[in-house]
Simulated scan of single mutants.
Amino acid sequence: MIDKPYNPDPHKHPGLHLIALLEASKAVLALLAATGLEMLGPQPLRDAVNALIRRFSLDPDHGTLPSLLNMISPDAVHLAAAAMVAYGVLHLFEAWGLWRAKAWASWLGCVTAGIYLPFDIYAILRHPGWASWSVLVINLIVVGVLARDIRKRHGTIANAA
């Protein structure tokens, strides 16, 4: 049986294209969230946390939500928005590379999706349900497709040597 060489032609990778679209959508959402944070500023966040404290009749002086309320400041909002912009740019970069079937993008995507897996499992343990399971399955599929792409590329390099 003759082994066909791996063809990294971007037009022959529908799996990579789907993952690229997923990554691009995450990037757009992160950039929109960062823009929204910068436009609204800290006051709407403070109002939302205060509403949660009132809604659940929590102690307004002690606990997690009052601590969070004390941390919401213009500087914290700018920092959170900057982190979201960095996240969005990273995923846009990854999406571009995956769409063009770049090997580095498969590595980047495999690592970034793999980082989520322990958190996905923790989410299932804390909040079992179809949403938590769906996120885990999607991330496992992404890691599997990208790992397969990496393995095929590595096999091509090994066979060529």
Rank of each mutant, 00 (worst) to 15 (best):
G88A: 07
P44Y: 10
W96Q: 12
P74C: 02
L125D: 11
R46Y: 02
H11P: 13
A34I: 09
H17T: 14
A76S: 14
P128K: 11
A30Q: 10
H11I: 13
W104F: 03
I157D: 04
V49D: 06
W107S: 02
H91E: 00
D61K: 05
Y122E: 08
L32W: 05
A147E: 03
Q43Y: 01
N159A: 15
L21D: 12
G15Y: 03
A113L: 02
L58Q: 12
L98P: 02
Q43K: 00
N7R: 15
T35E: 09
I157P: 01
A82S: 14
D149F: 02
I19L: 04
A34Y: 00
R46P: 02
K26V: 00
L98Q: 03
S57N: 14
D47Q: 09
K152R: 15
R126G: 13
I53Y: 09
L18S: 05
T64F: 14
K152M: 10
K26N: 03
P5N: 09
R148G: 12
G15Q: 12
A24C: 04
Y87S: 07
L68K: 07
F119M: 14
I141Y: 14
H13T: 07
V137I: 14
A123R: 13
G114F: 04
Y87K: 04
V137K: 03
H91R: 00
A24S: 08
K102L: 11
I150F: 03
L69E: 09
L90G: 04
Y87Q: 08
L140D: 04
H78L: 09
F56I: 11
L31G: 04
T35V: 11
A82K: 13
A81D: 12
L90P: 00
L69R: 11
Y116W: 08
V135E: 10
S106G: 05
D3T: 14
D149G: 02
L98D: 01
T35M: 10
L136F: 13
A81S: 15
P60F: 07
V135P: 08
I19W: 07
V77E: 01
D9S: 02
L92Y: 09
Y116F: 01
I72R: 04
E38I: 13
P60R: 08
L29M: 09
Y6A: 05
L90H: 09
Y122T: 11
D59F: 00
G129T: 13
L21P: 06
F56T: 14
A86M: 09
I19V: 12
W133F: 14
A158E: 00
L90A: 11
T112W: 00
L108M: 06
S134W: 12
G144I: 12
S57G: 10
N70G: 08
W99T: 04
D59K: 03
V85L: 10
R54D: 15
D75L: 15
C110P: 03
Y87N: 05
D75S: 15
A160W: 08
K152Y: 08
K152T: 05
V135D: 09
N50Q: 14
L29T: 06
R54M: 12
P128T: 11
